[in-house]
Design a protein around this nucleic acid. Structure first.
Lengths: 347, 347
DNA sequence: TTGAAAGCGCTAACAA
DNA sequence: TTGTTAGCGCTTTCAA
């Protein structure tokens, strides 16, 4: 079996077929410079006929605006989260003429070591998912080396930093309002890990929604958790043992919501007929369990897509000498309604 | 802020610093051809000093053995699975001088369309995770175009196909034996989706272990499921309602095992004191719930790493005109012991 | 064992 | 608006 090495078509062949010079073809393909409409058409047709795809390596080599960017990750996020991030970034990068590399930072490494590692890789920008995006030393080190940074859903953000994220507070507000509109007035809240600001932001949204609807906040209904299933078990027990049991529970993430459902089952409290339980994040768990969780989905894939876009924009302004952009993108979350919530039963 | 564009060092500089020609430097760096020990050392030192990293684009362009390979995926696997696959492949590919691209096949596309898409991308090989790896038409089409294929954990494999996977049957055997060694004799089994052979393979391992230990198989203890949490609920209900309730349950995946735990909780049966429950796959769910599941972990990341290796090897033999290799890699699984199993209580 | 020359496919800079 | 020239960093010849 001799493998007929079919070489992919080059821009040369495209140019020949379109009856123009290589440069005109290049310009037509990249759509940057001025090309006559006629030439443009001819080249486009040739590209189609030949199934031409630009050779990314050649392009990068030829000193175009192509650059390398890195998606840096520690192994502290879940693979699902990282996978989504990867898919978004991998899909968008080529279109922005960016070459994506993936770098894992060693467990327990110092910020300085990671900076060295990244600098070694000659990347012009990095995408920092949580919790890396909140590591001040790392960010400072990277910025000192003039490496562009995009933080994904950071807890706080610096002045010169690009960020993408969703509006946690507002999402929590919406979810709470949803519960209120279902008729619930006594809503329990299970907090997340106090070290993550996301927990505080979600609580704020919860409080705001209650206030906005003229409902008092009963502090006994706000119980601590730390985002783990285990903590959700304890928190739910505490809520369900209350004399005036809440008719709905808003858990700060899906794991804890799942735990709350388990506790309800143990106590033979029907979900959602007797109690509504909502989560946050739309992890696989949310749709795996029964009843499936009503929750908030963050568009993780879109976030990394946007991150790549932000980097591309930053590079462009850099090249043009324009003032650096300040990009803070907030993406829309989605309220995913499943089976764990219901209209409050009349008593 | 003028960005001092620090150009990365080139092989030219390395050669100059080492006092050799560019070619010698290239040879020393790639370690392929014969280079004097002295030159080798000098080059290595220069590389270190300068922090030189070969420019992958230039290398690919210069017509080295670099090739493009694709990881093809439909969106029917979980992001976590895909993420792991991606991480393994992305890490290994550069080391094998392969450029990885990720292609998603459109929902409901015909095999022929996908073949076109892949061919268009000029890839020399593709990695096919389940369920794509069992799509005969797709595989035929790809092979007809002379594109190398590695199937990840396929249900069955063709003659000319490279595969990596784990020994499902044996893993199930081990997990069952583990339960038997804990003293269990009445072990329930919840089947997976009958359309996936993995379910049958796991059941076979289960039966083999029982037989090997002189235990009879009580067919009433083998109940159907389809890998969903929901089906696990029904299956577990059925098992727990049995007059002679099993003292342990082997669920074909984690989701169903989690469902079984929920059912046990509802019936106030303590896990693991009164019943042991094991899963399969070690999904995030396994460690999220309480008690955390004892389960089997497949080394997904390693699988894609191996897949890349297999492709690289196939290309090498192709280039050398050697007979094509037949690579069937079986990786070791791992029995992850957590809190959902225990020694059988004496009665 | 080493080196010199040529060129991979493409785009920046210039010139026409 | 278009074409020409040069060269990106590397590896493949081929010759020494």
């Amino acid at each position: 079996m001799k493998s007929q090495k079919k070489k992919p078509p080059t821009i040369k062949e495209v140019a020949a077929r379109a009856g123009v010079s290589i440069m005109t073809a290049s310009r037509a393909i990249n759509g940057k410079a001025l090309v006559s409409a006629k030439a443009q058409k001819a080249v486009e047709q040739a590209v189609k006929d030949l199934g031409y795809i630009p050779n990314a390596s050649a392009r990068a080599l030829a000193g175009s605006a192509d650059r390398r960017v890195a998606l840096l990750h520690s192994n502290s996020t879940t693979s699902a989260y990282l996978g989504e991030l990867l898919l978004g970034a991998l899909g968008e990068a080529p279109q922005r003429h960016l070459h994506l590399v993936v770098e894992q930072c060693a467990q327990g490494a110092f910020a300085q070591e990671i900076v060295e590692q990244v600098a070694q890789a000659h990347v012009a920008g990095v995408i920092l998912p949580p919790p890396l995006c909140d590591w001040a030393e790392l960010i400072d080190g990277l910025q000192a080396r003039d490496i562009a940074i995009v933080a994904i859903a950071p807890d706080r953000d610096g002045p010169d930093m690009l960020t993408v994220g969703t509006d946690d507070r507002h999402a929590a507000y919406d979810l709470t309002r949803h519960l209120i509109e279902l008729g619930h007035q006594r809503i329990g809240f299970i907090e997340g890990n106090p070290r993550h600001r996301s927990s505080a932001r979600r609580l704020q949204g919860f409080r705001d929604a209650l206030a906005q609807h003229g409902l008092d906040v009963d502090e006994r209904l706000i119980v601590p958790g730390d985002y783990s299933y285990r903590s959700g078990l304890d928190a739910a027990e505490q809520l369900m043992a209350l004399e005036a049991r809440p008719t709905a529970i808003f858990a700060c993430n899906d794991d804890m919501a799942a735990a709350a459902i388990t506790v309800a089952h143990q106590r033979r409290i029907n979900v959602p007929a007797e109690i509504s339980i909502c989560g946050f994040d739309d992890t696989p768990l949310a749709s795996a369990i029964w009843p499936a969780l009503t929750t908030i989905r963050q568009p993780i894939r879109d976030m990394s897509r946007e991150a790549i876009g932000l980097l591309a924009m930053r590079f462009r302004t850099q090249d043009e000498g324009t003032a650096g952009i300040i990009g803070k993108v907030k993406l829309d979350y989605q309220l995913i309604r499943r089976q764990s919530d219901a209209v409050l039963a009349r008593h």
